[in-house]
Amino acid sequence: MSEPAVEVSNLTKVFSTGLSKNYVVAVDNLSFEVAAGEVYGLIGPNGSGKSTTMKVVLGLMAASKGSAKVFGYESGDIRARNEIGFLPENPYFYKHLSGEETLKFYGKLCGLKGSELKDRIAELLKLVDLEGAAKRRLGGYSKGMLQRIGLAQTLIQNPRLVILDEPTAGVDPVGSRQIRDLILKLKEDGYTVFLCSHLLEQVQEVCDRVGIIFKGRMRREGTLDELIRIESQTAMTLENASPELISKIHDLISSDDAAKVIEEGHPRTTLERLFIQIADQNRKEESA
């Protein structure tokens, strides 16, 4: 296994709020790794510490305890940032610049110039399907277009790691579909993607692995398949099963002492249920 793209170890981030001695523990002893080449999703409700974790990884914030590394560089090191493209939550960028000018600005900041920069801009505009809007000012872009120009901006210097904070939030279903396709394309192209979302169903299909974060702590982690599977249970999805067949199956089950039917119905998002279950569990723990 090569060096991990992101390595977060025992990360704790405490905010002191106001003048009083009030503290918010936004991230609580969090550890995880994002392997090079994978798409990793940090999933949790609003306020669970996802953005804070990303900002520490980027060096926009300092860790209260623990550390974050990017391809072996301490976060905050300019060489770490050189390997990262970041799309913040609800990005706006300069409204007075056109799409093309925006990419040019970020490209120059990354040290690109001349025909190399020009080619890269053309390539990225094509990738995010904004060639037609390249000359328009961002003030007139839709939310989905802003998100896509933002995505193009993250890739400008050919970074190895792309960090996306809520890439599909607030975007309509079509726009969100486009963004997910782009993320899959990034993975194909060998990028490592570290994203976060509070919308499980929107990102589960693009993530190789997910971590579920709640109140700053990692609650579950693994591949989607691992997380969803419940070893003691077996699900069967049948097609065109007649009522007679179903009743036969029920008879069979009732003839067995140990087995019983827990649920029956049409399949749906199970990660969401897992998530709700964790939240419930946490609530019980707290009220206990």
């Binding site: 090569s2 080449g37 190895r160 192209d189 990028y191």
Partner: peptide, 8 residues
């Protein structure tokens, strides 16, 4: 996988 970035 992508190559490491150029030096800055």
């Amino acid at each position: 996988l992508r190559a490491p970035a150029r030096e800055v």
